[in-house]
Design a protein around this nucleic acid. Structure first.
Lengths: 195, 195
DNA sequence: TTCTAATATAATGCA
DNA sequence: TGCATTATATTAGT
C-alpha cells in the first residue's frame, strides 16, 4: 500500500525502518526521526515546545526560563508586595504566612500568588459597568472594535476586558438557549408520552 | 423567554427579529451611545456570498467518518434534533428579513443562521495526538498534503483537522515570536533608561 | 455552590 | 496561506 511518508526524505511508515540513508529525492536530510518517535510511542514528554502565553500585563525582564508559571514580573500590577526571585519561594512564603494571618490577608497572598503564576487578576466590574454592557449587548452582541474602544473609554476599562466580557456574555446567552431548548424538548417528549 | 415559536430552533432567529425591530424607538435612558456606533454601521461587509458551506458533520446519519471526536452526539449537540426538518423554513424567514434591515443586521442574521446550521463541534485532541503533531511540527511546520493524509490515518483524524491544526499552530508560533520581540524592545528601552 | 472572568485553542471567513 | 475573529472547553476567583 505504497506508504507515503511523514518525512519525505527518509522515513518510512513500514515497520522495518531499515533505510535511514536519506537523500532519496529530497534535500531535507535533517529528518532523522523514526515513526515511533514521531508517534510518541516510546517516550513521553518533551514539553519544551510550549509557547509563552500572551500576558501583556506582566512586565517581564530577563525572561529566559520560559515556563510561564515561573516567569518573574518586574514591575507589575497595582499592589504587588513581592519582587522576589522564585515562585517556589513565594509559595513557601505564602504557606508559612498562612498560620499567622487572617483570612483576608491570606486571600491577598493567594491573589499575589496567582498573579505570579501569570493569570490576570479577576476584574470586578461595577454595577454600573455591567448595566451599560448589558444594555449595549441587548442591542448588539457583536460590537466592533470602535464600539469596544468607546465603551472602554466611557467605562474606564481596557478594551480587552470589554472584548472578553462580550465573548463570555455570548457564551452565557448560548448556554441559556441550549438549556431552554433542552427543556422544551423534554416537555415535548413528556407530553407526547402522556397523550 | 416566551418564544414566539414552538420549534426551539426558531428562537434565535425570531428573537433577533424582535430585538432588532424593537430597539430603535426603545432607546434606554442609561445608554449614552449613538445608535450608529452601537449598530456598528461603519462596518461594510457584503453578505451576498450566500453560498452554502460544506458541513458534512451536520449529517448525523451518514456520519461514517467515525472519528469519535467529531461525531455528533445525538442529544447534546445543539439543534441536532431539529436540523432535519426546518432548515428551509429558517432560510426563508431570514431571506424575508433581509430587505428590511441594514447590512449589519443582515450580518447578524447570517451569523444566527450559520449558528443554526451548526459549527463543527470543537475537536478535542488526545494527548498523544498533540504530541505527534507537535513533533511533526518541530520538523516541518508546513506539511504537504501527503504528510497530512498520513498523519490523519495514523491519528484517526480528518485531514482537515490536521490542516487546521497546523494553521493554528503556526499562528501561535508567530504570536509568541511577536511577543518576545516586543518584550525585547521594551526591555532594551527600559534598561537604557535605567543606565 | 453558582456565576463568570480569564485562558487556550479549534473553527470560520476573508483577502 | 495568513490573519482576525468567533466559538467553546476549561480553569479558577468571588
Amino acid at each position: 500500500m505504497a506508504s507515503t511518508s511523514l518525512c519525505p526524505a527518509n522515513t518510512s511508515v513500514s515497520q522495518n525502518c531499515q533505510k535511514t540513508s536519506g537523500f532519496v529525492e529530497n534535500k531535507t536530510a535533517q529528518c532523522s526521526f523514526s515513526i515511533e518517535s514521531i508517534l510518541g510511542l516510546e517516550q513521553k514528554k518533551d514539553i519544551t515546545s510550549a509557547v509563552k502565553p500572551h500576558r501583556p500585563w506582566t512586565d517581564t525582564c530577563t525572561n529566559l526560563g520560559n515556563n510561564p508559571h515561573t516567569q518573574i514580573p518586574v514591575i507589575s500590577y497595582e499592589n504587588s508586595l513581592f519582587r522576589a526571585n522564585s515562585t517556589a519561594m513565594q509559595e513557601e512564603k505564602v504557606l508559612k504566612c498562612e498560620k499567622y494571618f487572617s483570612v483576608t490577608e491570606r486571600l491577598s497572598f493567594k491573589r499575589e500568588l496567582s498573579w505570579y503564576r501569570g493569570r490576570r487578576p479577576r476584574t470586578a466590574f461595577t454595577r454600573n459597568q455591567i448595566d451599560v454592557l448589558e444594555n449595549v449587548f441587548k442591542m448588539n452582541s457583536y460590537p466592533g472594535i470602535d464600539i469596544r474602544e468607546e465603551l472602554a473609554r466611557k467605562l474606564d476599562l481596557d478594551e480587552d476586558r470589554i472584548q472578553i466580557w462580550f465573548q463570555n456574555r455570548r457564551a452565557k446567552l448560548k448556554r441559556s438557549h441550549r438549556e431552554s431548548q433542552f427543556l422544551m424538548v423534554k416537555n415535548t417528549f413528556t407530553s407526547n408520552l402522556l397523550d
